[in-house]
Simulated assay, not measured.
Amino acid sequence: MTIDFSQAPDTQVAAASGRTFLPSYDDDAPPIAPRSSLGRMTPDELFVRAGSWLAALGLAWITTQRLLPLPGVPWFLIAFFVFGILATAVTTAATGTWIDVKDRVAGAVITGLALVVGIALVAVVTYVAVKGFRPLLNLNFFLDDMSGVGPKDPFDEGGIRHAILGSLIEIGIAVAITLPLGVGTAVFMTEVGGRFARIVRTIVEAMTALPSIVAGLFIYTVWILALGNDRSGFAASLALSVMMLPIIARASDVVLRVVPGGLREASLALGASRWRTVWHVVLPTARPGLATALILGIARGVGETSPVLLTSGAAEFTKANPFEGAMNSLPLFIFGGVRSGNDVAIQRAYGAALVLLILVLVLFVIARLLARPRRTTTRPSRKARS
């Protein structure tokens, strides 16, 4: 029996001859280019992106400085961003698909908006630091209060000790009130549910846009006028609590809804009650997100002026008891210094604003450290060590 190897496929030839089949390739075919690693741009992609924005830079300069009467840096930056988006879309469409165009344009828009937010944040912090660093060079600015000190006295006299202490006391009381209430409200909306939970969620969402002056007027009307209490730091803490409560409750509700339902089902399947499931499974899993909710609440309340001004008032001396008399705070001190019109008082106000930024940053770091998940270290057993 003879086999015609010229007509048989390569596999049949290899099987009949008993040899290992090795597919042959055309020597003239180009080699397969290796794929780049995920997340890295190829030189061609980098050239297209950089070239698009360089072209946008030239088009923005020609348009705003030569063709149209649009002088100034703001118009130049706006034109540069718009032309950059258009150039990115055109160059990507010439070398890629419609999906690539949408991806590049969306990435450019998001990156540009993030840069705008970052630049604005850096500009605000830098401006406050430049205007208010001189009072911070004196140690008495942190250790003394303004009792007996005039607005035109030099920086080596007086300080903001009373304002720092008042802000810490007021925000501490507000956090102690709103944190359990806000998290408890979120647990009720997420874990209990029902018709009443939907009503509570609607009210919480509506209260997130509550003006600060309304919260101050509410506490002033109820706590001071109706119940006959005096204006104090505790009343200011209640006003801050009204503002912080919907923020913490809403953010905590979003975080708890992200917790996987399989964790709850596993805990309930092991015989745990719903309360133990929430306390030992749901809340520890959502602890980093709950810390973020607390940070958002503190950021909302620590810089408010109008509710504190209505419910507490300002004092130029140190007050440690929040239940007796007026208690100053950093926002009130800043407000009073800026509206005075005196250069020295205005610089003190900028110094207090810089201290407020530092204080908020410290509180944020502490909240993050407390919410960091614990590291579980497993020790080897005796058999493994032996």
Results as ranks from 00 to 15, higher is better:
6 S>L: 11
7 Q>A: 10
7 Q>Y: 09
10 D>V: 09
22 L>W: 11
25 Y>A: 14
26 D>L: 13
27 D>L: 10
30 P>C: 03
34 P>R: 06
36 S>R: 15
37 S>M: 13
46 L>H: 10
47 F>P: 02
49 R>T: 12
57 L>M: 09
57 L>Y: 11
60 A>F: 03
61 W>V: 10
61 W>P: 00
62 I>Y: 15
65 Q>F: 10
66 R>H: 10
66 R>Q: 13
68 L>E: 08
69 P>S: 01
70 L>T: 00
77 L>M: 14
81 F>E: 08
82 V>I: 03
84 G>P: 10
84 G>W: 04
84 G>Y: 11
86 L>K: 06
86 L>Y: 14
90 V>A: 08
90 V>K: 02
91 T>P: 14
91 T>A: 13
92 T>P: 06
92 T>M: 12
93 A>C: 03
93 A>K: 08
103 D>A: 08
104 R>V: 09
107 G>A: 15
111 T>H: 06
114 A>I: 07
116 V>R: 03
119 I>K: 11
122 V>I: 15
125 V>L: 14
126 T>H: 07
128 V>S: 09
131 K>W: 03
136 L>Q: 00
136 L>F: 01
139 L>K: 11
139 L>A: 10
141 F>H: 00
141 F>D: 00
142 F>V: 00
143 L>M: 12
143 L>I: 11
144 D>V: 13
144 D>L: 11
145 D>Q: 01
146 M>P: 04
149 V>Y: 07
152 K>H: 11
153 D>A: 12
153 D>K: 12
157 E>T: 14
159 G>S: 12
161 R>Q: 00
172 G>S: 06
172 G>R: 02
176 A>R: 08
183 V>D: 13
184 G>A: 01
186 A>N: 00
188 F>M: 06
195 R>G: 09
204 V>R: 00
211 P>K: 08
211 P>T: 13
218 F>M: 15
219 I>N: 02
237 S>W: 04
237 S>H: 08
242 V>L: 06
243 M>L: 15
249 A>P: 02
249 A>R: 00
254 V>P: 09
258 V>H: 04
261 G>K: 12
262 G>S: 14
262 G>M: 09
265 E>W: 04
266 A>C: 10
269 A>G: 07
275 W>I: 09
279 W>A: 06
281 V>L: 01
282 V>R: 02
283 L>A: 13
284 P>I: 01
293 A>W: 02
294 L>A: 13
296 L>W: 07
298 I>F: 01
300 R>V: 01
302 V>W: 00
304 E>D: 14
304 E>G: 09
305 T>I: 01
308 V>P: 08
311 T>C: 15
312 S>L: 05
313 G>N: 05
318 T>I: 03
321 N>F: 08
322 P>H: 01
323 F>C: 10
327 M>I: 08
327 M>V: 03
329 S>K: 07
332 L>E: 03
332 L>T: 05
333 F>Q: 04
334 I>F: 07
334 I>C: 05
336 G>R: 14
337 G>Q: 04
339 R>C: 01
339 R>Q: 02
343 D>F: 14
343 D>T: 12
345 A>N: 09
350 Y>I: 08
353 A>R: 03
359 L>G: 00
360 V>P: 02
361 L>F: 07
364 F>R: 07
365 V>H: 06
365 V>N: 04
366 I>E: 03
374 R>K: 03
376 T>F: 15
378 T>A: 10
378 T>R: 02
381 S>A: 05
381 S>H: 06
384 A>M: 14
